[in-house]
Each structure stands twice: as C-alpha cells, then as structure tokens.
C-alpha cells in the first residue's frame, strides 16, 4: 500500500517535513516508509517535523525519535501549534519553533496576539526544562536550578524559584517576577540582569517569604511581597 507522501522543505538547519492528517501510528508508518525508500538521501539527515495542531504524547515522540535514530536520521525539532506538544518536545530535549525557527515566519506562523496572554504550568520545572512564552507565565510548582523561564510578560511562581527567569524578553520594563520563595540563580527583566552568587547550601535553608522583583531606575530590586512598591 503506497503511504501518503509528506512535503519536504530544506532550510538552513536541515529538512522540514510537514506531516499530514491521520492517526499518529499511520502517519509515523508513512513517514518511516518514505524515509526507508530513500535511505541514501535521508541517512545522516537532521529533520524537523511539523505536526500542526496535533497533540503528541511523550512516549509517541520518544518512539518516533528512536525509530528515526535507527535509520540514521536525527529528529532535532518538532514544529507544533500545541503548547502541550511543545513542552513534550522540550522535555525530551527536542527543539521547538520557539527555540529554533522563531524568525522563520514563512515556515511557522507567529501565534502572538495583541491582548494579554498567560500560560499556566502545573508541574515542577526540573533542571534542563525551558519555557518560552509570548505572554505571562504562571507556574504551580517549583522552578529548580538549571530550569529557565522566558516570558514577554511577567512571571509568577507559586512555589520556589531557584532557576533562571527572564521577564519582558521583548524589552517591556514594567514586568515583574515573583515567587513564594525567590531564590534564583539569575533574574532578568527587560535587558537588565541581576546575578545571585551565594552559598548554595545555605541558600536552601532560607525561610519561605514571598517576594517580588521589579525594575526601577535601571536596576532590579527585590522586596517582600507586601512591601510598598518604591516607585509609587
């Protein structure tokens, strides 16, 4: 049975394959068949797959990567319109359009809207996790050392912030970063950076006190949550 043929485009980083409609197993089988037929062409290739709005589970994406890897094909990116699929890809160490193809508007449509956007993440972000979002980011969980959040808006962590956080990545200086325990490795608001170098063992012992970081007069200031904003 001849499977569907998916369109392939070349771009700077490798090949982009746009998957069609249908169940994941069918689509995967079709893609592998397409690759098997042109082994010489695909061997050693770096590919990105465009799954459109499809939600791909971690086990499915991991299996796909392994099957491709067995054919000498490196799945380095998954292009998706689903934030669920994006976070699955990122947790597997696979790039998404946000990390690789941000500027390639011809390939990936920019999903930004003008209003206020926010995403709620209901889990602890462990080391290596990276979240980038064109709006505000709310985390219900911790942000561990080695994890990072980048938001065009503000960042709210209902838990311990111990990794790195960058609010206002597009330059907005009114954004804030706050956490039940603000104990980050590095903070950025707009283009201002604040580093935190201290005894990491002692830092773990600090008492819980909700705090927020704001930008005023070109510097990041950290205050307890209920303290008056010095700007006002």
């Amino acid at each position: 049975m001849p499977g569907a043929r998916f369109p392939i485009k070349g771009f700077k980083e490798g090949l982009l394959i746009k998957l069609g409609e249908g169940g994941w197993n069918v689509v995967q089988a079709d893609l592998l068949e397409q690759i098997d037929e042109r082994m010489d062409f695909f061997n050693g290739a770096k590919i990105a797959i465009d799954v459109d709005e499809r939600i791909v589970r971690a086990a499915e994406m991991g299996a796909m990567r392994d099957k491709l890897s067995e054919r000498g094909v490196n799945l380095f990116a998954v292009i998706s319109k689903s934030s669920v699929t994006d976070s699955v890809a990122e947790s597997l160490g696979i790039s998404t359009h946000q990390t690789i193809l941000r500027e390639k508007d011809s390939i990936v449509k920019n999903m930004l809207s003008d209003g206020e956007n926010a995403v709620l993440i209901r889990k602890t972000l462990r080391s290596g996790a990276s979240v980038k979002y064109p709006g505000h980011v709310l985390v219900e969980g911790d942000v561990n050392p080695g994890a990072e959040i980048m938001a065009e808006g503000s960042i709210y962590v209902w838990g311990k912030l111990r990794g790195s956080a960058h609010a206002g990545i597009d330059g907005s200086d009114k954004e804030i970063i706050c956490a039940l325990e603000l104990n980050p490795s590095i903070l950025r608001i707009a283009n201002i950076i604040k580093e935190f170098s201290k005894n990491k063992i002692k830092a773990l012992k600090r008492k819980n006190q909700a705090q927020k970081a704001i930008l005023s007069f070109g510097e990041i200031h950290i205050t307890d949550w209920d303290e008056q904003n010095p700007l006002k």
């Binding site: 971690a58 086990a59 991991g62 699955v88 947790s91 597997l92 160490g93 462990r126 080391s127 290596g128 996790a129 561990n144 050392p145 080695g146």
Partner: peptide, 13 residues
Amino acid sequence: RDADRIIGIIEAE
C-alpha cells in the same frame, strides 16, 4: 542538578 535533569527526562519518557 544532574539528578534533577535526569528525573525530568525519566518522567517525560
């Protein structure tokens, strides 16, 4: 830190 990373990957897998 590395253990934390690996635990995240194990969860994802």
